[in-house]
């Protein structure tokens, strides 16, 4: 099995690649929208700003490939900024349109809490799915506060509740970095990639 990782700017992909390779999923990093469209597994990582991320996706024609995958429910994982790019817009880059595949806006953490949120915070799913209760590693200044309709979500508190992960079929979006969240995060990647049934016990 192979995961195709979208190259967005100079994002570091070594951690994501290492995490998949630990359980036998090979990886490649690509800027080719056709390859992403046809990929078994596609990963949209993302570090940097919302505006720069969108520019990079539009210039390469990757925007349509990602949107199509998410709309068709093909196995797609969005991480950190990747989650935010699925939204309509973000406080970070006013006037820039996101992929808009989710009808939600991304806003900045309120004043009075450490921003960026750097470090480990508790994640609590509100429905069974790929994400268990546990601690995840975050590095973000912006977040989504309500899950879009039709998506299940996990919630975390940092100056109020926010969406730390959401999933719909084989599409999973994490505001945290599963690849940096130890054994707990590794399990999330395995469940998503291998499409394990969620245990009901």
């Amino acid at each position: 099995m192979r995961a195709s990782i979208v190259r967005t700017g100079v994002a570091n992909t070594a951690s994501v690649r290492a995490a998949f390779e630990r359980f036998g999923v090979t990886t490649n990093v690509t800027t080719d929208p056709g390859a992403v469209r046809d990929a078994e597994l596609a990963v949209l990582p993302g570090v940097g700003s919302f505006g720069a991320g969108m520019r990079s996706l539009r210039e390469s024609g990757m925007d349509a490939a990602i949107t199509d995958r998410v709309r068709s429910g093909l196995p797609t994982l969005a991480i950190c900024l990747g989650l935010q790019l699925l939204a309509r817009e973000s406080d970070e880059s006013p006037g820039v349109r996101g992929l808009g595949v989710i009808d939600a806006a991304v806003t900045r953490f309120p004043d009075g809490v450490r921003t960026p949120q750097f470090g480990w915070n508790r994640v609590q799913p509100s429905a069974p799915g790929p994400v268990d209760t546990g601690h995840a590693y975050f590095a973000n200044s912006y977040r989504m506060t309500t899950a879009p309709s039709g998506w299940d979500a996990a919630i975390t508190d940092h100056g109020g509740p926010f969406v730390s992960a959401m999933w719909h079929g084989r599409v999973l979006a994490c505001q945290f970095h599963p690849e940096l969240s130890g054994q707990w995060g590794q399990r999330i990647l395995e469940r998503w990639a291998l499409a394990e049934e969620v245990s009901s016990c």
Binding site: A14, S15, A19, R22, Y137, L180, S181
Partner: peptide, 11 residues
């Protein structure tokens, strides 16, 4: 760094 990266899943 590359060897340690492959071995551990924390920042």
């Amino acid at each position: 760094v590359s060897l340690v990266r492959k071995a551990i899943a924390v920042p």
